[in-house]
Write a protein that binds this DNA or RNA. Structure first.
Lengths: 151, 151
DNA sequence: TCGTTGTCTTGAATGATTCAGGTTTAGTGC
DNA sequence: GCACTAAACCTGAATCATTCAAGACAACGA
């Protein structure tokens, strides 16, 4: 059950991590949780719909704090602004569409982080394997593959 | 001139891919090949050492063209400007140091591209798996682990 | 040699993100 | 309830990588 019907108690989680509970931060955290790999812009506009006004800086700072606290995870596919998601702690990866940029979670087949061991770690102390699969999502695939017959 | 003995014949490769052979592009290509995951800034300054002057835009355009032609590969670890390398075609990955940002190649343990199949492709047509291992390089490791004696 | 068009130039613009500093406010102790 | 302190928030400006624009130059095939 990845989506409980009732949202997690965001205030308690903020408090637990030593962060202050404010209307802005509650809205930001809930927005990331309700959203699907939203970027800062999307988070900001959704929060503004709810609260009237929140500055970009407040959103940036909050997301930074949440990331540091482990409440959200920040991903940054090449060529894309940073995106945020609520699935943390597990070691899942991402499918990114080259066409529309849509991001989808993929479970990690291997288990816990780092889910992969490099063939040769070159003396590095590796703590994370960041895996991004690039391709075309079902919708964009449809357009591209049927392209020669239907544009 | 040691520069005359190109590891590969860069002019021929440029020509083969339909690109024009200019002093700037030869220098840019050779610089990427001689360098170790250089960013645009580093490529530009090295090329300028050789040719006197080349504009940033020329370097950006050339690297873009080389990437499209498959002569170089562009990587972009989260939070870092784009970097370029000459190893293309194989499906190797990268170790990135969280401390100093140094990038090291790692051979792909799994074999040919895409070296990994996502556990569930969610209907995506996957053509590439971009794997970045994050950790601490030998030098930075030394500093961090021996920290309690030297802080 | 000439013409096409790819390449290079200068200069400005964009977009994501961060910095600076000053003000408000949540949480805590009295 | 009241005051204090640091976190959170605000406005405004700066930074950095990258791209756009438009004109000048030059590689290379005809």
């Amino acid at each position: 059950m990845r989506d409980t019907e009732h949202p997690r108690d965001s205030s308690a989680e903020l408090r637990r991590t030593g962060l202050r509970v404010t209307a802005a931060r509650l809205a930001i955290l809930d927005t990331v949780r309700a959203g699907d790999h939203l970027d800062v812009d999307a988070v900001t506009s959704r929060v503004r719909e709810r609260l009237g006004h929140v500055s970009f800086q407040a959103v940036y700072e909050a997301l930074h704090a949440f990331t540091a606290a482990g409440l959200v995870r920040r991903i940054e596919p090449a060529g894309s602004p940073a995106r945020f998601e609520c699935r943390v702690g597990d070691n899942h990866h991402h499918l990114v569409c080259r066409e529309c940029g849509h991001v989808t979670d993929v479970d990690c087949a291997a288990g816990e982080a780092p889910c992969l061991e490099p063939a040769d770690d070159a003396g590095f102390l590796v703590d994370e394997a960041d895996v991004t699969f690039w391709g075309f999502c079902p919708d964009c695939r449809r357009g591209a593959e049927g392209g020669n017959t239907h544009d």
